[in-house]
């Protein structure tokens, strides 16, 4: 009997202490802005040697400095990021986030800071081309919840009789590895990431590009409850104008052509109506 009580007690106490300390941590959690990132999405955001790295990370830090705000990064899987923003678990979403109409109904975008096109990746020794890689019984890998998945569903799966199966992955690295062992025939991914994989020596090649001119941007919760959208927009413009943006991007994707900021701002996004927060001279009429 004594044996039981004395052995269980420490375990219970540890548990209680853990609970206590994590509850105590909530008290001051609101101070710095929490920036949600998907840290398995190089070159935008990833973790190396225990530290957050990537274009979105460095740029976000530069913007925060410009705007004089404190930030901390919180990693989350991509499909959780937008719900987390909607539930105000995070204040800013900074990852390679594509601006889409559906997303713009749930979150507010900053001005676009990048533009991507998607590419179809196939194994290096494959003779599939951009068309055969996404039709006729092909199994195509995308990241679950990504704009590539949405694009495929909208333009291929739901609007044609093309026989394609989508394989949804937690992240693109797994998709590319699955393609290497022949589980899927191709992967659709943004051109920036595709270039990364090729640079890293993966046995893949681009079968072709899908020109979608998708803008990427930061996002905040709908209706900007923290009132930081203007600061972020100004920060983006400031680091672009100062050349810091170009330096950051060049560091992660050497030799890339940096798209102009602000890029193409689709009409369907509310926050792109004139006047844009923080940058009143910009916006769609």
């Amino acid at each position: 009997m004594k044996g039981i009580t004395t052995s269980i007690l420490p375990a219970v106490m540890v548990g209680t202490m853990v609970l206590g300390s994590s509850l105590a941590a909530t008290a001051y959690a609101q101070d710095p802005y929490t920036v949600g990132v998907e840290a398995s999405f190089p070159p935008w955001a990833y973790v190396e040697g225990g530290e957050f790295k990537g274009i979105a990370i460095d740029a976000m830090e530069a913007i925060a400095e410009q705007a004089g705000i404190e930030i901390e990064f919180q990693d989350m899987p991509f499909p959780s990021l937008i719900p987390a923003l909607a539930a105000e678990k995070i204040d800013i979403l900074a990852t390679g986030l594509t601006v889409t109409e559906e997303r713009s109904q749930n979150i507010d975008f900053t001005i676009p800071w990048w533009e991507t096109n998607d590419v179809v990746l196939v194994p290096e020794d494959s003779d599939l081309n951009v068309f055969t890689a996404v039709c006729c019984g092909a199994k195509v890998g995308v990241q679950g919840g990504s704009s590539q998945q949405a694009w495929m569903e909208e333009n291929v799966l739901n609007s044609s009789d093309i026989d394609v199966e989508l394989a949804k992955y937690d992240n693109y690295v797994t998709a590319v590895d699955d393609m290497a062992i022949g589980r899927i025939s191709s992967v659709i991914v943004d051109d920036t990431s595709a270039q990364e994989y090729i640079n890293a020596g993966k046995a893949v090649k681009m079968a072709g590009k899908i020109y979608i001119r998708a803008p990427l941007a930061l996002a905040v919760a709908k209706d900007d409850p923290q009132g930081i959208l203007g600061d972020l927009n100004q920060g983006i413009m400031a680091i672009y104008d100062s050349g810091e943006w170009g330096k950051i991007v060049g560091e992660y994707i050497p030799g890339v052509t940096v798209p102009a900021i602000p890029g193409h701002m689709p009409d369907f996004v509310d926050t792109y109506q004139k006047p844009v927060a923080g940058l009143p001279e910009l916006g769609n009429e």
Binding site: P42, Y46, V47, V173, V176, Y197
Partner: peptide
Amino acid sequence: TRQAHYIITSTQGNV
């Protein structure tokens, strides 16, 4: 598991 993901994504593979 998440820490492992970090290594996998930052090294582009080695699952």
